[in-house]
Amino acid sequence: MSARIVQIYLPESEIARLEDILPRHSRRYWREAVPGGQEKYCCIVQQRYTERLLDELEDAFASVPTFTAFVEQLEAVLPLIEETPATELPLPEDLSPPSAIERFFSRDRLSTDELYDDIEESLHIRPSYLLTVTLSSIIAGLGMVSGQTAVVIGAMIIAPLLGPTMGVALAATVGNRKLGQQAAITLFIGCVFSVLAGLALGYLTTVDPLVPELKNRTVVQLADVALALACGAAGVLAFSRGSSLSLVGVMIAVALVPPLSASGIYLGAGYPDASANAMFLFAVNLVCVNVAGIAMFLIQGLPPKSWRLTGGILAIWAFLLVLLMSMMAGRIFLGFGSWDAILDRLSVGG
């Protein structure tokens, strides 16, 4: 269900302020004393109000040394909490009312803190992360080389680039520079290891450059742009609702891991032109995923710290997308990126 239980610990001297805050975000809450002079409040909060409750708690009590609040998901509660216009709690005076689209999409979205918590662990460059990226790329590469689509999908389920990719989009949306830098570095290193794994695979195995699973990663068409935009939007939509990470990973990995692996394979096999084309597909997909991801986070009502900063970042990603699409159109018009031209170069290279 779309509700959370929020537990709050405060000294007794702060209770009056807390009891002034809670009715604006919750209709059910109760109090109990705990050892150490603390008071514990438990409140049931509809998910759409969790974000604003946590923000107000942080503003009011961040300076209180013993203040603690944490959020847990509820599986069921009786009597039921209905989400209708009649049960809607009034907004604080400093918040503007959400649009109809924002209201619809934000009903069951995780709060920003919950999203941070889901992403944080995947942003550290650990041996397990590097090994997972490498293995995922090898599995995807072997699937493409052998023409086995099911194997490529299996590599996507591993989803090693999910956290960093979501982290970049989330950081751009909320304007968190530290998160953005950490996510970008982790994503970059993961991409390097993915290409290196494909490079080793292309060098050590016999590669038929015309296998459809590989060849399809050397051509960029409008359908690929639409696919990457859909993957980014669907991935963020599922991720922000706490869906299975495997499901979200497939959505993101379909646009990122195979082109990276294919680029390394073609380079290791001695087809630099095809390798460059695969890397170009990856660049288009990465930009599309971020454009769609940021837009979907904003549609769901994720609150930016600065609309000017977030709008500027989104404009840069959109500009890069237009630039890459112009390059794609130019390559096809001049014959460098057409299907026949690529097949000719692969045949000659073989």
Rank of each mutant, 00 (worst) to 15 (best):
Tyr116Phe: 15
Thr68Asp: 14
Gly264Asp: 00
Ala276Thr: 13
Phe297Gly: 05
Phe280Asp: 04
Pro79Lys: 02
Glu120Asp: 07
Leu91Gln: 11
Ile119Val: 02
Asn176Thr: 09
Ile316Asn: 02
Ile101Thr: 15
Ser243Trp: 15
Ala262Lys: 01
Ala283His: 05
Gln7Phe: 13
Ala183Gly: 02
Ala155Leu: 02
Ile21Ser: 03
Thr87Tyr: 08
Met296Leu: 14
Ser261Phe: 01
Ser240Ala: 13
Ala155Ser: 00
Ala226Trp: 12
Val64Pro: 00
Tyr9Ile: 11
Leu53Arg: 05
Leu78His: 13
Ala172Met: 14
Met156Leu: 15
Gly202Glu: 05
Gly301Cys: 10
Val254Ala: 14
Asp118His: 10
Gly242Ser: 04
Leu135Pro: 02
Leu187Val: 04
Gly147Ile: 03
Ile294Pro: 00
Ile139Leu: 14
Met166Cys: 06
Glu93Tyr: 10
Cys42Ala: 15
Ala274Cys: 08
Met327His: 10
Asn176Ile: 09
Tyr49Asn: 12
Ala197Ser: 06
Ser240Leu: 11
Leu161Ala: 03
Cys43Trp: 00
Ser347Thr: 15
Gly264His: 04
Leu95Lys: 14
Ala278Phe: 00
Arg308Ser: 13
Leu74Cys: 02
Ala226Ser: 13
Met279Tyr: 14
Pro160Thr: 05
Leu89Lys: 04
Leu142Asn: 06
Asp113Met: 11
Leu237Tyr: 08
Ala100Leu: 14
Asp224Ile: 09
Ala262Cys: 10
Ile81Leu: 15
Ala230Asn: 05
Gly249Ser: 09
Asp117Gln: 15
Phe280Gly: 06
Ile15Met: 15
Ile119Gln: 05
Ala274His: 00
Gly37Glu: 07
Leu247Ser: 13
Leu80Arg: 12
Leu130Phe: 06
Phe70Val: 11
Ser263Gly: 15
Glu120Thr: 04
Asp94Gly: 07
Gly249Pro: 01
Val133Ser: 04
Leu323Asp: 15
Leu237Lys: 02
Val6Lys: 06
Ala226Gln: 14
Ala274Thr: 00
Pro23Glu: 06
Ala183His: 01
Gly293Trp: 01
Gly335Lys: 10
Leu343Arg: 13
Glu114Trp: 09
Gly268Leu: 08
Gly337Asp: 01
Glu14His: 14
Thr68Tyr: 13
Ala276Glu: 11
Asp117Glu: 15
Val289Gly: 05
Val77Gly: 09
Val225His: 08
Ser338Arg: 11
Leu210Gly: 06
Leu343Ala: 13
Ala278Gln: 04
Leu201His: 07
Ser326Tyr: 12
Thr173Tyr: 03
Ser261Pro: 08
Pro90Trp: 04
Asn176Val: 10
Pro90Met: 01
Phe67Tyr: 08
Ile185Gly: 09
Ile313Phe: 12
Pro11Gly: 12
Thr66Val: 09
Gly190Tyr: 06
Leu281Pro: 05
Cys231Thr: 00
Ala274Leu: 06
Pro272Tyr: 11
Gly202Ala: 08
Ser243Phe: 14
Ala238Val: 05
Gly190Ile: 03
Glu120Ser: 04
Gly268Gln: 04
Ala69Arg: 04
Ser275Lys: 02
Leu214Pro: 03
Ile252His: 03
Ala33Met: 09
Met166Thr: 07
Glu121Ile: 10
Lys215Cys: 07
Gly190Trp: 01
Glu58Leu: 10
Ile294Leu: 02
Gly350Leu: 14
Pro79Asn: 05
Met156Ser: 08
Ser13Phe: 09
Asp113Tyr: 10
Phe104Tyr: 13
Met251Ser: 12
Asn277Leu: 08
Leu161Thr: 01
Leu204His: 10
Leu245Gly: 07
